[in-house]
Simulated scan of single mutants.
Amino acid sequence: MKASPVRQPLQVFLVEDATAVRRKIAEALSAIPDVSVIGEAEDSASALSGIAESGADVAVVDLRLASGSGIELLTLLAREHPSVVTVVLTNHAGAPFRAACQRAGAHFFFDKTSEFDAACEVIEALVKQRAAPAR
């Protein structure tokens, strides 16, 4: 009988300027089985280097950051780390922001206030997708 491979947790990096909000998001994501929050940043430059150094699978990004912008970060991640899945979680959820994030390369976009559960469901789906046997 073949031993099943050890499942590695989905590694998530949080980019959010508000410490209290970052804590709540980290707590919610860490409660999802097979998800590990491996790093956090409050600005674009720290996020880019942290994501690169940590080998994150997913970056959860707010648009308003302590310095730099989430859209700028999305553009850099799409160009420099295209394998990182980007999930925008923001209070700036109007159509122009959604369109700008899509142009910047975001994979998913959620309103922090009304779509937080949906963002968590996407993270859960990524865990399941990763655990599915390759065909």
Rank of each mutant, 00 (worst) to 15 (best):
E53N: 11
F108A: 13
Q129G: 08
L126T: 00
G105Y: 00
F13W: 04
E42H: 11
A52V: 03
G39W: 02
E16I: 00
F110R: 03
A119M: 15
A18Y: 11
G70M: 05
S46H: 13
L76G: 01
F108K: 07
A99Q: 14
C101M: 05
A45T: 14
P33Q: 04
C120W: 01
D57H: 14
A118T: 12
H92M: 14
L29K: 04
L74F: 00
S67F: 08
L73F: 12
V15T: 09
R135P: 14
S36H: 10
K112R: 15
T19A: 13
A134D: 10
A18H: 13
V122L: 08
S69H: 13
R79I: 09
A125Y: 08
D117M: 09
C101S: 15
Q102N: 07
V6P: 04
A100G: 04
H92K: 03
S67C: 07
A104Y: 00
S30M: 07
S114N: 14
A134N: 08
P133H: 09
K112N: 07
K2H: 09
A100W: 00
E72K: 11
M1I: 06
K112C: 05
V122N: 02
R79G: 11
A78M: 05
K112V: 02
L73Y: 11
A31F: 01
S54R: 09
V85T: 15
I51H: 02
A106P: 01
A56F: 04
V122P: 01
P82F: 11
L77R: 05
S46F: 01
A47Y: 01
F110N: 07
E121N: 15
D111Y: 08
E42G: 12
V88G: 01
L76P: 00
A118W: 07
A93Y: 08
R135V: 06
L29E: 06
K2D: 06
A93K: 05
L10E: 04
R79S: 15
L73E: 10
